[in-house]
C-alpha cells in the first residue's frame, strides 16, 4: 500500500520552547489524492505545513516525499540511516524534507505551497508573479544570468516558454485579462486563485494549500473546488489541504486527517470523519461523552 504514497509523515513532533505544537503525528498522503488536514483553530495544522515545506525544522520525526518509481520507497530506511537528504535517480526521487532548507523543498523535492494570509508579490504584475515562480528553470536557461545579460537566444526562448505556461494558467484561473495589472489590485478571491496558479508554475508533485477557501464567498468556494479537482485531474499533482470550509473539504477530499491540540484524533474518508464522535467532540469543544447531549439539545 505504501507504494503509492507521495508523502509519509512519521512521528512528527514540534516543540516551541515548552509549547508542544504537534505531538507524534503520523499520516500519509497518496499520489494523486486530495488529502485534507482539518481541525479546530490552534490545532497545529499550519505548523505541520511549515514543517513539511521546510520553514520550521521539526523537533523530531521524519517527513519523506517521493516521486517517480514506487520501488524507491524501499530505500527509505537506507536513506534515513545515511546523512544524505535525498536520493535522486532518473526515474524518481526520495526526499527527507525535515533535512532540507525551505527553498530546496520546493526546488528539488517539488513541494509548493500557498499561505493562509496571501503572500503574492503585490507590486508586481500578475504575469510577473507567475514568471518569478519559474525562477529556477529560467535561471538555468539564462546561464546563471551571464548568457541572459549578453542577450543569448537561449534565454529568450526559455522566457517565451515560461510566458506561455503562465498564459495557460491565467486562462485556467480566468485572469488572462488582468495579466498586466499589479497582483495587489486584484479582488481577494482572484488573489487566492493566482497564488495557487503561482505555486503550480513551479511544477510541484505535492501542492500544499493553507486555507485556500478562507474569505471566499460560496460561489468562489465552488469555483475553487472545481479548480482543485481539475488540477488533480490534469496535472496529476497530489494536494494537501488545510481547510475550515467543510463544504470544500467534504466535496473534494479523498482522505481526511483530523488534528486537535497537535494530536491526530481521527483519519479516514470524508464520510467516516463526518460521523466520528471524536471529531464532533473536538469541533464542539466538549468531551466525547457529552456530544450526544449537546447535539440533541434544542437550539435556543
Amino acid at each position: 500500500m505504501s507504494a503509492t504514497d507521495v508523502l509519509q509523515v512519521e512521528h512528527l513532533t514540534m516543540r516551541f520552547g515548552g509549547l508542544v505544537a504537534i505531538q507524534d503525528l503520523s499520516f500519509r498522503a497518496r499520489h494523486g489524492d486530495i488529502t485534507a488536514l482539518i481541525g479546530p483553530n490552534g490545532a497545529g495544522k499550519t505548523t505541520v505545513f511549515n514543517c513539511i515545506t521546510g520553514f520550521y525544522k521539526p523537533t523530531e520525526g521524519r517527513i519523506a516525499l517521493h516521486h517517480g518509481d514506487p520501488a524507491m520507497w524501499d530505500e527509505l530506511g537506507a536513506l534515513t540511516d545515511s546523512s544524505l537528504r535525498k536520493r535522486v535517480r532518473a526515474d524518481g526521487g526520495l526526499f527527507l524534507l525535515e533535512r532540507m532548507p525551505d527553498y530546496l523543498v520546493t526546488k528539488d523535492a517539488r513541494v509548493a505551497r500557498t499561505f493562509q494570509n496571501i503572500r503574492l508579490f503585490k507590486g508586481m504584475t500578475v504575469l510577473e508573479n507567475l514568471l518569478v515562480s519559474q525562477h529556477n528553470p529560467l535561471m538555468r536557461a539564462s546561464g546563471l544570468t551571464v548568457l541572459g545579460i549578453l542577450g543569448f537566444g537561449v534565454y529568450r526562448h526559455a522566457e517565451n516558454r515560461a510566458t506561455e505556461k503562465a498564459i495557460q494558467w491565467l486562462e485556467k484561473i480566468n485572469l488572462i485579462d488582468r495579466a498586466d495589472d499589479p497582483a495587489g489590485d486584484l479582488p481577494y478571491g482572484d488573489q487566492r486563485r493566482l497564488e495557487i496558479a503561482r505555486a503550480m508554475c513551479t511544477d510541484p508533485v505535492l501542492l500544499c494549500l493553507d486555507e485556500p477557501a478562507a474569505g471566499l464567498n460560496p460561489r468562489e468556494s465552488g469555483e475553487l473546488s472545481e479548480l482543485l479537482l481539475s488540477i488533480r485531474q490534469e496535472t496529476k499533482t497530489s494536494i494537501l489541504l488545510i481547510e475550515h470550509d467543510m463544504s470544500v473539504v467534504m466535496e473534494i477530499s479523498d482522505h481526511v486527517v483530523v488534528l486537535d491540540y497537535g494530536v491526530k484524533i481521527s483519519e479516514g474518508t470524508s464520510a467516516e470523519i463526518r460521523d466520528d464522535p471524536n471529531v464532533i467532540a473536538a469541533y464542539l469543544g466538549v468531551e466525547q461523552d457529552e456530544v450526544e447531549s449537546v447535539i440533541t439539545e434544542p437550539v435556543s
Binding site: T53, D102, L104, T106, R113, R119, L120, M124, V132, S133
Partner: peptide, 10 residues
C-alpha cells in the same frame, strides 16, 4: 516584495 513567498517558490 515578500521574502517568505520567494523561499516557498524555490
Amino acid at each position: 516584495e515578500d521574502e517568505i513567498a520567494c523561499r516557498s517558490l524555490g
